[in-house]
Write a protein that binds this DNA or RNA. Sequence first.
DNA 1: CGGTCCCTACCCACTACTGGGTAGAGTGCT
DNA 2: AGCACTCTACCCAGTAGTGGGTAGGGACCG
Lengths: 214, 214
Amino acid sequence: MNRKPAISVVLVDNHPLVLEGLRAILETYEHINVVGTAGAVQPGLDIAARQAPDIVLLDINMPQISGIEAIEIFKKAAPSTKILMLSMHDSREYISASVVRGASGYILKDVPNEEIIGAIETVAAGGTYFSTGVSDVLMQRKQTKENDLPITTREREILAHLAIGRSNREIAGLLDLSVATVETHRKTIKRKLGVSTTADLTRIAIEHGLTPAV
Amino acid sequence: MNRKPAISVVLVDNHPLVLEGLRAILETYEHINVVGTAGAVQPGLDIAARQAPDIVLLDINMPQISGIEAIEIFKKAAPSTKILMLSMHDSREYISASVVRGASGYILKDVPNEEIIGAIETVAAGGTYFSTGVSDVLMQRKQTKENDLPITTREREILAHLAIGRSNREIAGLLDLSVATVETHRKTIKRKLGVSTTADLTRIAIEHGLTPAV
DNA sequence: CGGTCCCTACCCACTACTGGGTAGAGTGCT
DNA sequence: AGCACTCTACCCAGTAGTGGGTAGGGACCG
């Protein structure tokens, strides 16, 4: 059970409970070595830069700097360290955002202890690990992304405003455009998306996460 | 430090990490006695019914039976036991729902260990404990609820449709009404709510949970 | 340099929505 | 019965959005 060299792990989570729990769980395994814990991104970075651990277990929901944003910062501070995300949610956005930024894995906090250990071992060995269900989410996400909205940046911006009920005039005012221009964009968007009503636009905007997630 | 009789506590949380973390934290205090842990409501109930602990620490987010629903069940199974809710979120709905059902306290999982201990002591002594910020939320909630939307059922229904961008005609079709009637409702809603644009209606509908939470 | 795309902006006729009314039928309360 | 309220529905004049065009300037690419 202890043939491999020990895996060094740093824990970053703003919940003391989770930190304690993780430490307690991981310390029962001889081949896993918790070399530091941090309650926020910055102290975590300091530890990671000094220790260059094999793995950073990074909570996704943290105040100030979120775990997602922190991925790239950790990658710079300790390039050889693998990032394993910890989350309460199997949210599409979080998962794909993590993968895009270079995380090696994404595990949900409610999985059995053994799965967490398995994930750490897999990622330390250079692999990737995603909790059951997470892979499906990624596949779904990829599909959605591939035939993502075939509209331009400006149009996407206009769509976001339209979707929350703003009038052409309001949008024109906000973006410092002529009302006529907004109308043109609106027409183009509808033509490109093959819809004719505002309700359809709203629906599409919500589906694609354009509305500011109230 | 150990003059008081020990406080018996049962932990119920579907996250093994949180259970371990809580146990680790609480066991460092001599006057707190973790007499059982459970990963779901049902086993927690069995323990609580047998042990009649002073306090049940109950996670709010659990599959099948949520912590909120569990409050009343625990109250029945062990009437003398105080319920202290644990949550990741300072959500208005959760907090007020917990209070209404008889929880003695509500603490957020990201508070310092000392605050958790303090909460347990306070609740064991017959008091109530709410994490900083939670009280404010309760006050807010009361206000919001009291002057909730002053519109009729029918108007609320129309508003939900309007807020997702449906046209008067579409709504008339869906509800089997004359377009004129929908327009009248629309006017009444705007007058009652004191707004003039569709964007305002959308905003209000979202704030009050009328939009079907996509 | 020519082609393509994006962003901007306008014209025109048509349709939808707005905001001001009024009003009848039904319900519930006193 | 009288009153308040809700839901329904219409009229009218004004404003906003729609759907069909066209078009110039700028960026990018071969």
